[in-house]
């Protein structure tokens, strides 16, 4: 709440803490500042960032997955849905946050709605493409073995589509981590916020920009690696698609 007021009132009290020589003179990087402010600035921002991303990708995946299952059965639907999500994706994030404010206020919900909308364009086409790529022979075999439609979906189609689904998730997670930094323009949340504050200083505070920026990139890459590892465990046959 206090931080929210800080956004509204404009000028921000410098986050310089101890005011060591390095910090006061704004050297390239001050490890001392990072050590001193890990607990009160960087770590909470990182945790918030993980939350923002996790919730957005989770809800986005649920929506994309269920609509993809419908579009897989009724093929004519996938074109319009892809077009709609591509259109959503072209809306600037900074603008979309503000356009949602009259509906959901200056809240985390506003940020999440926008982030969820952006994940759809990366998740939906990949899930549909993955399902469509299941070889007809595999479906024939499933039918010959007496699988019901449901069994075919769960035991044949989804496992074979898994690599493509994970590929979509990777792009969605990495992009959402990146987009979530823009949430700082609306809310004092996420890794974008320390950067936002540092930019408001008369002389932008470099250590804060570099440390929060590095954390955002590291978070994106870590999440990406985790998804690759998950795919290797769940779909070991797809190692060829290491790209």
């Amino acid at each position: 709440m206090i931080a929210a007021q800080a956004v509204a009132s404009g000028p921000v009290i410098p986050n310089f803490g101890g005011g060591s020589k390095c910090v006061v003179e704004n050297h390239a990087f001050c490890w001392g500042w990072v050590n001193a402010h890990w607990g009160d600035t960087l770590q909470p921002a990182l945790v918030q960032h993980v939350e923002l991303t996790g919730i957005a990708v989770g809800i986005g995946f649920a929506i994309a997955f269920s609509t993809a299952l419908v579009a897989y059965r009724r093929r004519w639907l996938s074109g319009p849905i892809e077009g709609f999500s591509a259109l959503l994706y072209t809306i600037p994030s900074l603008a979309l946050f503000q356009i949602l404010v009259p509906f959901t206020g200056i809240t985390t919900t506003t940020v999440e709605v926008a982030l969820v909308a952006y994940t759809l364009v990366m998740l939906f086409p990949n899930i549909v493409a993955g399902l469509n790529a299941v070889p007809a022979e595999a479906l024939d075999v499933a039918r010959a073995m007496g699988f019901t439609r449901r069994q075919t979906l769960l035991r044949v189609e989804l496992p074979l589509a898994l690599p493509a689904i994970v590929a979509g998730l990777r792009v969605a997670v990495v992009s959402t981590v990146s987009l979530a930094t823009i949430a700082a323009f609306l809310l004092p949340k996420g890794l974008g916020y320390p950067i936002f504050l540092a930019l408001k200083e008369p002389s932008p505070f470099r250590t804060e920009i570099y440390s929060a920026g590095a954390l955002a990139v590291a978070l994106a890459l870590t999440a990406d690696l985790l998804l690759v590892a998950t795919r290797r465990v769940l779909a070991p046959w797809a190692r060829r698609s290491a790209a």
Binding site: V177, G192, I195, L199
Partner: peptide, 18 residues
């Protein structure tokens, strides 16, 4: 393509600004 997505634009702008 991965780097292009992983580098948040806010971070790029702030880093180049310094």
């Amino acid at each position: 393509s991965i780097a292009g997505r992983a580098l948040p634009v806010l971070v790029l702008i702030a880093a180049f600004l310094t």
